[in-house]
């Protein structure tokens, strides 16, 4: 039986690209939906706020695995047959990351001092101007470190996309292991690749956090 070879490493590298691609889809999609939900979460209208809270609670209170299964079987029910695994996994991870990003960003929006909101209103800025000119520039500074930190979570959680038949890094590792049965080597290499992707991100997040805290020290 042939052992772990360069061919396998090449396959893993190729799968790592899919992991990155899926992470990008999840981050962009989750960012868009999550931002909308974050805005809803701080809306002055009560039912909008409650809807956002419910959404966040449900997404954060169920495992991503179950969410992916629901999407996978749900798409078939809605009437689409033969949906590419990338789409199913992309939708699932988008929903998942939107639930968490919404809560992170809500905190950041609300951490902008109340006086800033009031001052903007006193200056007769429209709500849109207030958001884009006053609140967001300040909130984004606070939001960057935890958002980069959450990117690590997204990359790691793409490993669950294997359950809907998407071949990314973890699934590729499983496939290789099924053919050569050297689980220790294969999954160590897989883990090393994940580490190589995630570690720079977490280091970056930490550095941003330190930079942000300079003024408070």
């Amino acid at each position: 039986m042939p052992g772990f070879s360069l061919v396998h490493l090449e396959f893993l590298g190729w799968a790592a690209m899919w992991t990155l691609g899926l992470s990008a889809i999840a981050f962009v999609g989750g960012g868009l939906v999550g931002f909308a939900v974050a805005l809803m979460r701080i809306s002055p209208i009560r039912w909008v706020r409650y809807a956002a809270i419910a959404y966040i609670q449900v997404v954060q209170g169920t495992p991503l695995l179950i969410l992916l299964f629901l999407i996978y079987f749900g798409i078939a029910i809605v009437g689409f047959q033969e949906v590419p695994a990338l789409i199913a996994a992309g939708i699932g991870l988008t929903i998942y990351s939107s639930g968490f990003l919404a809560e992170i960003w809500r905190g950041c929006l609300q951490s902008v001092p109340k006086t800033q909101w009031e001052a903007a209103e006193c200056l007769a800025l429209t709500p849109w101007q207030r958001m884009t000119r006053v609140i967001l520039p300040q909130a984004m500074r606070i939001a960057t470190p935890p958002t980069v930190g959450f990117l690590v979570q997204i990359v790691k959680n793409t490993s669950l996309a294997s359950v809907v038949g998407f071949v990314e890094l973890a699934q590729a590792g499983k496939l290789i292991n099924n053919s050569i049965f050297e689980p220790f080597t294969v999954f160590m290499v897989v883990a090393a690749i994940y580490f190589a992707i995630c570690f720079p991100l977490s280091t970056w997040s930490r550095r941003l956090e330190r930079k942000l805290n300079v003024s408070r020290r």
């Binding site: 790691k156 959680n157 294997s162 973890a170 499983k174 999954f187 897989v190 994940y194 580490f195």
Partner: peptide
Amino acid sequence: NTPLLVQVFI
């Protein structure tokens, strides 16, 4: 910095 799934497999 590594997924739980891979840790479980290892």
